[in-house]
Computed example of a mutant assay.
Amino acid sequence: MPMSVHVRAAVAAAVTVSALTACGSSGTSSDTSAAPVKLREAVFFGDSLTDAGTYGIRFTTNPGMTWAQHVAERLGQSREPNEHTVSYSDVYQGKPGLSGPGGLNYAEGGARANSAYSTVSQNPEGTPISTAVQLQHFLNQHGSFNPDQLVTLYIGTNDVAYNYDPTKDPALAQALRDNHSPTPEVMAAERARVQKAAEDEAKTAAAILDKGAQHLLVFKLADLKVLPWFESDASRRYVSELTDVYNTHLVDSLPKDAKVQILDTGAFIDDLLKNAKTYGFTHGANEDACAQPGQDFCAAAAWKSPDADRTYVFAAAEHLTTHANELLADYVMKQVGIPDGH
């Protein structure tokens, strides 16, 4: 049965470790002796899908917010990113971000698990910083996590799709756009690259637990083949295979700990696409709310229709619309047991 925006009202008020591990957890512990701990705030690590506006824009149908901002708002905390840049043109140049506004959202558009996303610099402090570096920034500022903090880790899209970017592997990127599948040798190298990224994410997850996190929500990737950026059959097969490789290796590599909950993002996206009318969507897989293809974001004047932020699932090549972000926030809140009107 499709989840509606009203489902949060039925969620229990208190969050326990057993509630956190009830849905898709990799943890094996069944210890429920600990007293219930109500989640007070959230700390976010990730990429553009979580970014709260580090670069002055959000990777969606602007001025809409990302799912993480909605979660932050419902918890009564700042919706702002942790750092900022003077302009979007400063990103991917190896330039570090600027301090402030200091929110608990460390996600940055273009982030990878533990590598730079740049053709000119491998400076780990250059924006976008990886989730491994994001964690270091948090620890430098706060030292450790509190028991009543929800920590979210949503990364991997940029690692999976990295060589589809024409600035990274022009030959492979163009071949995929021309509907030519990679050779077995190329795919073997791509699988190994993606597996390494998944291992890096798992190491960051372990480091988060080591620093005191009691509630870590790790997002699996939804199958990237449904995103508008991937227009040819070959590109969709390529990215679908690598998504599966990433998810499989991530789940296998994550700490087997009851404090880890795995979010089935793919089930969420599948539900939106299969039950589109229930949610008010009239445009589904591989359809972009932005009028121009290949955008990172679009303001209202650049939407395909005045209601595109509500009627499309996807926007800006590989991101979610305002409405889809709202629904993802609902889904996250439901899965971790935070009630409506927290």
Score class of each variant (00 low, 15 high):
Gln136Trp: 14
Arg8Lys: 06
Met65Thr: 00
Ser115Val: 05
Leu254Ala: 03
Gly97Cys: 00
His180Thr: 10
Ser232Arg: 03
Leu224Trp: 02
Glu108Thr: 05
Leu75Lys: 04
Ala189Lys: 15
Leu39Glu: 07
Arg193Phe: 12
Arg8Pro: 02
Asn275Met: 10
Asn275Val: 10
Gly212Val: 00
Gly46Phe: 04
Asn286Thr: 14
Thr54Leu: 14
Leu224His: 03
Gly156Ser: 08
Ala291Arg: 03
Gly76Pro: 08
Leu254Thr: 01
Arg236Lys: 14
Ala206Lys: 13
Thr54Asp: 06
Ala19Leu: 09
Phe145Met: 12
Met187Gln: 12
Gln174Trp: 11
Gly212Asp: 03
Gln122Ser: 15
Thr204Arg: 05
Phe281Gly: 04
Asp270Arg: 06
Glu108Phe: 04
Thr28Met: 15
Gly266Phe: 01
Leu272Met: 08
Asp233Glu: 15
Val86Cys: 05
Ala22Leu: 11
Val251Phe: 13
Asn158Thr: 02
Gly126Ile: 02
Lys225Phe: 10
Glu73Gln: 12
Thr322Asn: 12
Tyr331Gln: 03
Ala175Phe: 07
Arg191Lys: 15
Thr16Gln: 12
Arg74Leu: 05
Ser4Glu: 12
Val332Pro: 06
Asp223Leu: 08
Val260Tyr: 09
Pro63Ser: 02
Asp90Gly: 01
Phe219Ile: 02
Val239Gly: 11
Ala299Cys: 13
Ser144Ile: 00
Ala9His: 13
His323Asp: 06
Leu250Glu: 04
Leu209Phe: 04
Thr152His: 12
His215Arg: 12
His215Ile: 04
Asp31Pro: 04
Thr131Ile: 11
Ala68Met: 02
Ser305Val: 04
Ala175His: 06
Gly53Val: 01
Ala299Glu: 15
Trp67Lys: 00
Leu328Lys: 01
Gly266Lys: 06
Val226Asn: 11
Val7Thr: 10
Gly64Thr: 01
Thr243Phe: 05
Cys290Trp: 02
Asp90Gln: 05
Ala222Thr: 04
His283Gln: 13
Ser118Gln: 07
Ala111Thr: 04
Phe268Pro: 02
Cys290Tyr: 01
Gly76Asn: 02
Trp303Asp: 06
Thr152Lys: 09
Ile57Tyr: 06
Leu224Gln: 03
His84Trp: 09
Thr28Ile: 15
Arg191Asp: 12
Arg58Trp: 00
His180Val: 14
Thr28Val: 15
Ala315Gly: 09
Gln214Trp: 13
Leu227Ser: 08
Pro293Phe: 05
Leu327Trp: 05
His137Gly: 13
Ala301Arg: 13
Ala34Gln: 07
Lys196Asn: 09
Val313His: 08
Asp31Trp: 05
Gln292Ser: 15
Ala10Arg: 13
